[in-house]
Write a protein that binds this DNA or RNA. Structure first.
Lengths: 220, 220
DNA sequence: TGTTCAGTCTGGACAGTGTTCAGATTGGAC
DNA sequence: GTCCAATCTGAACACTGTCCAGACTGAACA
């Protein structure tokens, strides 16, 4: 359609923008290079000027998500106890990632080595130092928290429709409840008995509880 | 090539076998329906007799992996303290999943609702009850442990070549170390300072340490 | 024994994917 | 004013998951 040659309005950021839009309303499978390209009014292979392959683009998307939804300021606020700061960061990141259901699965598919991810790590280390942890312990604790956070979100997002906004928690728990009521109580008695609790796995309550246990273990 | 009609030697299990083989030496991208089919000497669409779509096949693969590598007997051994039982289960599962580097990413892409996954949950609940936790707390703790375990493995596997066996830990840490030495110390001072610790993120030490913190938080 | 029928598998196709290559076009540097 | 690196296009390649119509089979039933 258009003629070749530089257009000017294309960039890494613009491509990531388009990818995120597409991800939200067509899901991860809909986020194809061709889809992104047409959304930008450009030929598919034009994207290869900015990213060497699709995996690199995905890493950029992930890093964008982390940068957008990690509230580093709240994490650094010295007026707030460290434990609560971490809770805020985690809650914000979880909400943000879950709001892009299709993206949550991607986050654990790319290494945490983007600029935003490194920045998050650095600030989290700051906060953990504020909490009295030595360098080494802080580093290990940092990773522990990240693993829990991303793991929780990923496992939560598996049950979500990637093409639609996440339904409210109650609804999601109800759906899980129905699924658990189908497991045979004679084979899995404990699972059946605690079905109510397990239905709440996908929820703020369980997320907060787990994080609290971890912070307990870290003496924070 | 062959004529249509039942052949007899095809089954859910045989398909999962072939898929796992292909996964191990060609990676997740190489695990295509066509690849699996030709490995089985069968037309690609024959698989649709056993699985409604590829996602279902993947779920079966994941459940197989969990069933294969979760040492439920060790988890139930009453002669061993609960804390150590959980450590054994976790270590075994991690080793097993990491030994299929391409598979680790899949595990967090499917819900933990397969037969083997449910069984693992049930036995883990048993162990947690042995450890003195009430039903509700045990259920929440169970999920916390699973999230940590799968999250850790997934994040660890991201840095592995899916088509090759995982190299020894030292080698992996060395590779990470080199990557961390490249981050600018003026922008990320804490990250640079603790690069040695962070290089060890992908390792048994960090895994065990994190699990210990969690079990501490659970008073186990 | 013959027929029916559900279950199995094939050939062939469809729309779509990531990626590559040669070539057209452009803007800025010398 | 000319060169050159960067940008973008058109067309193609090999491949993917999936679907349909139809060929074949074995066991159940008459």
């Amino acid at each position: 359609m258009a003629r070749p040659g530089p257009r000017g309005d294309l960039s890494d950021a613009a491509i990531v923008d388009a990818a995120l839009d597409l991800l939200d309303d067509r899901g991860p499978d809909g986020m194809s290079l061709r889809g992104i390209a047409t959304a930008l009014g450009v030929a598919p292979n034009a994207l290869y000027t900015y990213f060497p392959d699709k995996a690199a683009l995905l890493r950029a998307v992930v890093d964008r998500l982390i940068g957008t939804h990690a509230d580093l300021d709240a994490l650094a606020d010295p007026a707030v106890p460290v434990r609560r700061r971490i809770h805020r960061l985690a809650a914000g990141l979880r909400d943000g990632l879950i709001s892009h259901p299709g993206a949550a699965g991607l986050v654990l598919g790319a290494p945490m080595d983007g600029a935003q991810a490194l920045l998050l790590g650095e600030r989290l280390l700051d906060a953990l130092a504020d909490g009295g942890l030595e360098d080494d312990e802080a580093a290990r604790a940092c990773y522990l928290i990240i693993v829990y956070l991303l793991g929780f979100v990923a496992l939560e997002a598996v049950e979500l429709d990637p093409t639609a906004a996440a339904p409210p928690e109650e609804e999601r728990m109800l759906a899980r409840r129905k699924a658990f009521d189908a497991v045979p109580a004679d084979v899995y008695p404990r699972t059946a008995r605690t079905a109510a609790t397990m239905s709440a796995y996908v929820g703020t309550g369980q997320f907060t509880w787990g994080l609290d246990r971890i912070l307990d273990g870290l003496h924070l």
